[in-house]
Amino acid sequence: MIYMETCRVEDNRGVGGEYRILVLRSEQIAGSVLPGQFVHVRIPRRNDLVLRRPFSVFRVRNGCMEIFYKVVGAGTRVLAETRRHAALSVLGPLGRAFPDADPDAEPVLVAGGYGAAALYMVAEACRRRGTVLLGGASAGDILLGTEFESLGWRVEVATEDGSLGLKGRVTDLLDALIARRPGEHFEFFACGPEGMLRAVARRAMQKGVRAWLSFDRRMGCGVGACLACVLDVRDEGGRRRRVRVCREGPVFEAGTVVWEEDPGND
């Protein structure tokens, strides 16, 4: 069931750099959202911004859902200025959730930047604790490390500028993990830029690991009506199908995604 709910802003705080957490009082959506699902938020006070903005739900606590977001454009700038007690129109929960983790596999969460927020509920829901790999351009883009640790996950960090953890990419951490534990039965859950998802998918397919990828595409309606956010996948019969990230996704199994060009050696 998709709801359109008017949610009161309980908190909207900066958490370093351009990153913020928006806390929304919610009955219907918070009560039913699953890990990996998203919500579509109407930008208040600005009729010139005609589209809602999609956000992963970071977590649900005390009857509120929390959205971890980065101020990147006009819409998120307005959101950042939205005060406590303001009312926001929220559509959700939208999309298909991550499936339940395979109890026989070691879960590995792979996050690029604020992709970490979309994986937090997965970390909460997994019976088995595994490893979280956090990657970003710089130390300021490594998010929620202590939160994942306090859930009992092992956290490894890579930054492209080397300001925190390994100097390199999050997929370098993934390569090292796979190399360190040959014969381990892994399952990957990933959210981040599409290049990162592609790199995770490539490794998963090489190693025969099941990998669940959460995609972010420019969206119109969020409910599957406008066909803006399409992605090409292959169905069970190997037929190429153009599906909607907002409805059939945002989570797809890596092996089903048709990548636009050969992943090469990334």
Partner: peptide, 23 residues
Amino acid sequence: AAGNEPPRLVEVPCGLINSIGLQ
């Protein structure tokens, strides 16, 4: 019909431009 290649939608002031392509 498969429609056009993404991105298929862009927001502009007081409107949006789409190139869905009748998928």
